[in-house]
Design a protein around this nucleic acid. Structure first.
Lengths: 156, 156
DNA sequence: TTAAAATACTGGCATATGCAACTAAATAAA
DNA sequence: TTTATTTAGTTGCATATGCCAGTATTTTAA
């Protein structure tokens, strides 16, 4: 308990997986944001643009699911990108409830620029953490992010 | 590129560590928030109260460093907890620039309640992910959150 | 001892996220 | 087909976080 003599390395993050992941997210957030440099965009925006590009005009619903993000949260996060003209929403042909996200010309251009910078950052990550362990870590995190894991967690 | 035929399991998070960690943080955020139930507090607040308790009246600076959080971000995050009377700021005796964070009576009470709920959630996490791998994961994340890692990453 | 530099915090502004309530549209049930 | 239910998004409100600029102190250098 309230014992100020403990080691600074000891903390809730060594026992709580949620605390551990968020703490690492803060550290990486800063590191990758820095890597995006003067582009004016952040690491999270790179992830989003990148996934939109990889998905090829996904619906908001599908994109949100892939990103394991709340649909409304995705909407909010997309605001600045829409405002700055990097993405646009196009109504679906068949289902009028559906909207698809698409990268604009400017969006593709900035995405290429960000990808280049991201690649450099990811290489530094792999070098600092070890390429093998790096891949293993991402696989672990992908599993934790899966519906199967949520199912197991909730059921347990 | 924009090839909609790809597997839904494929995504930027399999290549970008930052994307992978944030994605997992969103999943765990929801699972642990749910675990906090009707207490009105979230998993992040549990982490904070917990670390304050473990540190024994830390300075804002020290707490921010331990949590790998920006000092101003910590200040913002503490707002709701201060408003609801779970923590209080006490000026340091020696250095008048310094403020220390302390749990109030209500703060200790809610912290005990949250810890109980957190323990149940953490047990489910360990069961779903494997106790061994769970500990290994937290160690990996703790390393990634360390100044040494940031140093290696930035230098590399 | 006085001026310059480093510290610890605060406040404002911006993005990141989630939940609950609400609207529009499509689908299943009567 | 009329009605109930489910789906896909939107909007408002709240917490989470970070950067930058500004204030109060303390420490260091002249």
């Amino acid at each position: 308990m309230a014992d100020a003599t403990q080691e600074p390395e000891d903390g809730i993050w060594l026992y709580c997986s949620n605390s551990a992941v968020r703490r690492a997210a803060r550290q990486l957030g800063r590191l990758y944001d820095d890597a995006m440099g003067d582009t004016g965009l952040k690491g999270t925006q790179f992830s989003l643009l990148s996934q939109i590009w990889r998905s090829g005009e996904p619906t908001l619903k599908n994109l949100a699911e892939a990103m394991v993000m709340d649909l409304s949260a995705l909407g909010h996060t997309l605001k600045p990108l829409l405002r700055d003209g990097f993405v646009e929403l196009v109504p679906d042909e068949k289902d009028r409830r559906v909207k698809r996200v698409r990268l604009t010309e400017a969006g593709e251009a900035i995405q290429r620029e960000l990808t280049s910078r991201w690649q450099a950052a990811q290489s530094r990550f792999d070098a600092a953490f070890g390429k093998e362990k790096s891949e293993e870590l991402r696989r672990m995190l992908a599993f934790i992010s899966s519906p199967e894991f949520a199912e197991r967690f909730t059921a347990g």
